[in-house]
Nucleic acid binder design. Structure first.
Lengths: 200, 200, 200, 200
DNA sequence: TATGAATGAGTCTTCATTCAT
DNA sequence: CATGAATGAAGACTCATTCAT
């Protein structure tokens, strides 16, 4: 009986999304053809269209998955005893980002800037992270770990801008020693967040 | 003699580059068809190809022009009596960036990440600005305006990351009050750069 | 299993090659547009490109098929009891060549003269026929059917030059009575090949 | 005063026709663009169109010039004391044909097969040469230099077929030693033409 | 579930030709 | 006579998508 096997369904979707991520990061959303993605996923076009009705749907699903993974990295912040240490650890974690992820994020940003649907996805995700980080920052201020004059919301947005800047840096200055860069970033970011007079 | 009029030639190229910038920012490099650019430039395809041999050439010329304009904004830094003030003024200037420029920069970053030719253009331009800013920072350190422990080169790279982050922010959080954002940015950036104990 | 049906595949290729031969003979390789060939093959361009990746590939495949057909006509020579009779029969067979085949051969020759890939195909095919004919001529010499002083290889090349000349004649002098022409050709060719003193 | 200078006019036309011959032989009639021919003739398109109203006109003018040159080579036949020697000398002269001329002839034949206008030019020229050669052959028969049973007209057509075959051979078997080939050709052709029992 | 044949609009690019200067 | 800017209709080829099997 060909009754639906949800597990298999999910596995197939994942296989497609993996292939899509690989292709999109290499060729961009428009540059990656469905045929290429099919080949990469070792699947016929007809079959792939069984799982995603449009290219648009595939792009959006892939973006959502990607952003959820990013979100997951921020969740840990809630349990960090020291918020600032937690945020610095997140920056430290940027060291592990692959080129594929970097390229994908840049592609997502560019697409979000012109495609309202993608823009909404990004903004929704951004708002979720911003809220999370802002809450943590406010808690940190209550505990005296964070400079009290900082606006938590804007500061949370800043963190994400720093991440975007770091992603861009990998393209702009790939030769720059990552250790020097990340150390510098952590040093300055620490100085920013901690109460005045409390250098890292 | 009816030999070529170089002025007209330059004007035509500019007309095309303007149309290209508009189209690329709206649809992306791949999404903008030559036909559309032609229509926007009010020019036949054959004529456009008289000025640019490829779409690639058009893209690259447009990118170079865009980046040179960015570079020009940084040149003023040399004459600023206080480097930090100069840099903060640059951040302040980001307020004037149009959506078109923002989108274009995002598209350029995404393209640079996968297209080596574009990547090289970006890196070359980035290096030029980095050198310029680093020199100004070093001079500022000599004059006691800038925290002496900062590495000028990495700090210059940081500035550009901040700009990239600000560009991304416009997509991520367009609702965020630009005044709040820019003030915050200037405040923190000032704290980063000025000698310790010298809050803005 | 609905895996590829190789028979259908072959039939489709044949359909395309037929259309291509018709169009190429009418308009030349460059003059025949893929769109026209598609229309002739009653097939969409996308579908045609499913079978041939380039126009070049289509041209070459068609040429190979055409030349193989020519080659096949020569194969019979091996079984002819009298080589000279066999060769004269081949010339006689030229009567049956269609205009399409003639035009195609002329187009192939012209293309082979400037396109190395096509040139190689032609030369490879030419060498195969030359070898075949030369062997038959040598055997004929051993049997006393062919003038012994003739160099088999060059004489085989001569035969093909005669064929090329006959193809050209159809263009140069279509009004010339084919019977008169072919009879003349056979007469002279026979005189050439047979041992001296043995007029046809 | 810009009054017409017919000499200059002729020289310009020649310059264009030279460039056209070069380009057509390299790329074919369709493959050679007017722009390329202009570049080769060091002339602007507007100027070139002053001399030839169409590409078609240029092609036809070039073909006529080419064929007239061929015709000129045959004119000498009239003064030859021995027709057969004269014809053999013509074959011998084929040794001097350049690749450009060869390719051009092949292109002309292919074009003549499908383009009625070009076909007519070729046939007109062919008829002129045929008449010339046939007359010489008839005179030769009267003088006992040529086998009397040969039909002069068909034999004249044969000569031209031999030339076409020789042109094709240069493409089919460029490696074949030209000396061997031409000697063979002359030997056989002599045997064909001379009265029976009169080997070369 | 899975295949891949099939479509046709759309992409970039070329080219013969015209025209203002 | 001479230039080269300008046109726009093709040309080869691609690709998202559908559908019969």
């Amino acid at each position: 009986m060909s009754s639906t096997d949800p597990q298999r369904h999910t596995r197939q979707r994942a296989r497609i999304l993996d292939a899509a991520a690989r292709c999109f990061s290499r060729y961009g959303f428009q540059g990656a053809s469905m045929a290429r993605i099919c080949a990469d996923a070792e699947m016929s076009p007809g079959h792939l269209y069984h799982y995603f009705p449009h290219k648009k749907a595939l792009i959006e699903a892939m973006i959502v998955r990607e952003l959820e993974e990013v979100h997951a990295r921020f969740e840990g912040l809630r349990d960090a005893p020291d918020v600032v240490e937690g945020l610095l650890a997140l920056i430290e974690g940027g060291r592990g980002w692959t080129d594929e992820q970097n390229r994908l994020m840049l592609e997502v940003m560019a697409e979000a800037a012109r495609n309202p649907a993608v823009g909404d996805i990004l903004r929704h995700h951004h708002a979720a992270i911003t809220t999370l980080v802002a809450e943590c920052l406010a808690a940190g201020q209550a505990r005296g770990q964070v400079e009290p004059s900082l606006d938590p919301e804007v500061t949370a947005a800043m963190l994400q801008a720093v991440v975007d800047g770091a992603v861009a840096r990998q393209v702009r200055a790939p030769a720059l020693d990552p250790d020097r860069w990340i150390d510098h970033l952590k040093h300055l970011y620490g100085r920013m967040l901690r109460p005045s007079g409390n250098a890292s």
